[in-house]
Design a protein around this nucleic acid. Structure first.
Length: 587
DNA sequence: GCCGTTTTCGGCCCGACTGTTTTCAGTCG
């Protein structure tokens, strides 16, 4: 049982408790907090259980939660969940995923109409049985039907690169209105997460109403979900949801902090503020007033003087912290690090001196060797590695020994014409199903860099897959493992294998792990990168470009590295070529 | 159900929008 599965079961448990009518909301929250801890854990919690580690050392895991997790890992079951589900059908959890439908409404639907599944709900709504329920109405019934329709075809979250494509034109459109004084995208987009669920736009506007109207009449808008004085929500024809919040200038910084999140980061920030007698909201940072003294907030606290709000810097400063870059705002210890003056000096795109994975027309790339090389030189790189596929990938025109020799001739000719950049001989060598490499040692010995990767048999049982990777990494000529987990975002899950063992082996044998910058891959993931770093495994960031245009995907990799707290010293292609090669040289 | 510079009890982050309500509950982020 892996972290993602444990988290799913505990999430289900929390929702079932809500439907059951658990009167203590903090008990529910405790489950959700535990879920967050598990999702964020770089190491498999399963392994901690197996090794007899004390789970209560983890944040938000107490005695009870530790025993739940241990039971789950060791038996695959959770008796407390089985108890609750005797009373509450587990299928009800699915219904709460519909927007506008929460635990209370699900309970009502079940009690009154015996609805337990999405199909039941759709049938009841179509028959007009929902509108007559107390607490529901005609509008609710319509919304439920629409939500079910959308739920059925919804494919998941948007890749960050897709979000970039959809958001940039919207920003341009909004900025054409002079009443928009400032506009920024906040949310997971600003944190540069690998995927985004929706887009949070934040604006300062002299006159909110017409700006909101401009927003809701953006041509690609398919439907307007909400439209208030300060908040609006639309769905674009692409199915992307966009929220716009309009705020006064004095609140812009606090709003930017608030809407950039993450939620968990905000919660920690507000707790920190409360300890200092301050209350943080999207409108600003306020002193807490004596009861009856100040203005009462919606949470019942009396607020006094505003102490910050216009800029993010002053909001953080008000709670004694330096500004924290958005990529770190996920409550992985950044607030503590900031408080201690120990924020990492994160890697930046300018630190990279070369790109170590790309393809040419010799295999499945779209541009010639010379075009790729010239494009890399134009991007200011000091070196570049060309990594066309090996022969096992016949569909890509993978190179056997004879073709590889031919390619080297062309490489030498092209390199001679481009003294401004150093050309590293390389290949993306297939790791065969048994862990052997697809290219002969005699050829590998003549490469500057041996990049190895899995492109087939992603479905091997975990033990076999692990064995395969360990064997490949132990090959005396292997240097870099490309896209190590093989995942493709929204399309293919990571391979099932023991990443911790693989990382340990890579550390031992001086093999680096790739952070594949392609926004469809972004592999290793951020938490895996953190685990790699912890084990002393070096990282390289490469685009895996299959065209000149793909070379510009590098920033996605850098953003992911930043989310993983990586500094230049953790990433080998920040080094000059000779240092890079000696760092990867085998003992 | 978790947690502790308010420490083993009594707290636990903040606010807007919708639909249905006649003053607010439920949901969401």
């Amino acid at each position: 049982m892996e972290n993602i599965e444990i988290a799913a079961v505990l999430t289900e448990m929390a929702t079932l408790l809500e439907i059951q009518g658990e009167t203590n909301p903090f008990r529910i929250r405790a489950y959700r907090n535990a879920v967050y801890t598990i999702q964020e854990s770089p190491d498999p919690v399963r392994k901690m259980v197996e090794e007899g580690a004390d789970l209560t050392e983890l944040p938000a895991i107490g005695k009870d939660m530790a025993s739940h997790i241990t039971e789950l890992v060791t038996t695959g079951r959770l008796s407390i969940l089985e108890e609750v589900s005797k009373e509450i059908p587990r299928s009800l959890v699915q219904l709460t995923k519909l927007p506008g439908v929460g635990p209370k409404k699900v309970r009502k639907l079940w009690d009154e109409l015996d609805i337990t599944t999405l199909d039941d709900l759709a049938a009841a709504a179509s028959a007009g049985k929902i509108a007559v329920l107390a607490g529901f109405g005609k509008k609710s019934e319509e919304k439920i039907l629409e939500a079910i329709e959308r739920h059925k075809k919804r494919s998941g979250r948007f890749r960050i690169s897709s979000a970039d494509e959809l958001v940039q034109p919207l920003i341009e459109y909004m900025l054409q209105d002079e009443r928009v004084e400032r506009l920024e995208v906040a949310g997971s987009y600003r944190r540069r997460q690998e995927t985004v669920g929706d887009i949070d736009l934040l604006a300062i506007a002299s006159d909110a109403e017409p700006v909101m109207e401009r927003f809701t009449s953006y041509p690609p808008v398919r439907s307007v979900e909400k439209s208030g004085d300060t908040r609006g929500t639309v769905i674009l024809s692409s199915d992307l949801q966009v929220d716009l919040r309009i705020l006064p200038a004095e609140s812009y910084g606090s709003a930017l902090v608030y809407f950039t999140g993450s939620k968990e980061h905000n919660v920690e920030l507000r707790k920190r503020a409360l300890q200092r007698g301050l209350s943080v909201s999207e409108y600003g940072v306020f002193e807490l007033a004596e009861e009856g003294e100040g203005e009462e907030s919606t949470t019942g606290r009396d607020l006094g003087k505003r102490v910050a709000g216009a800029t993010e810097e002053e909001v953080y400063a008000s709670v004694g912290l330096p500004w924290i870059t958005p990529e770190l705002r996920t409550n992985r210890g950044e607030l503590e690090a900031a408080a201690n003056g120990e924020l990492p000096a994160l890697i930046e795109f300018e630190d990279l001196k070369g790109d170590l994975q790309m393809h040419s027309t010799w295999s499945d790339g779209k541009n010639t060797i010379e075009e790729m090389l010239a494009a890399c030189a134009a991007r200011g790189y000091e070196y570049v590695a060309l990594t066309d596929h090996s022969k096992a990938l016949a569909m890509t025109g993978g190179l056997d020994a004879a073709k590889l020799r031919e390619q080297w001739k062309e490489i030498d000719e092209v390199a001679a014409r481009h003294p401004e950049i150093r050309f590293l001989r390389s290949q993306e060598v297939d790791i065969l199903a048994d862990g052997a490499l697809d290219t002969e040692d005699e050829m590998l010995e003549q490469l500057d860099l041996v990049v190895i990767a899995v492109h087939s048999r992603f479905d091997l049982p975990a033990a076999k897959q692990t064995e395969r990777l360990l064997k490949a990494i132990q090959h005396p000529l292997a240097n870099i493992v490309a896209h190590p987990t093989g995942r493709i975002i929204n399309r293919r899950d990571p391979m099932d294998f023991a990443l911790d063992e693989v990382l340990a082996c890579a550390a031992e044998h001086g093999v680096a792990m790739e952070l594949n910058a392609h926004p469809h891959r972004l592999d290793l993931r951020d938490i895996d990168l953190m685990a790699a770093r912890k084990r002393g495994v070096k990282i390289v960031i490469s685009t895996d470009a299959h065209s000149i245009a793909d070379l510009d995907l590098m920033p996605y990799g850098v953003e992911q590295a930043r989310r993983a707290w990586l500094e230049p010293a953790d990433v080998l292609n920040t080094l000059p070529a000779d240092d890079l090669l000696s760092a990867l040289a085998k003992a």
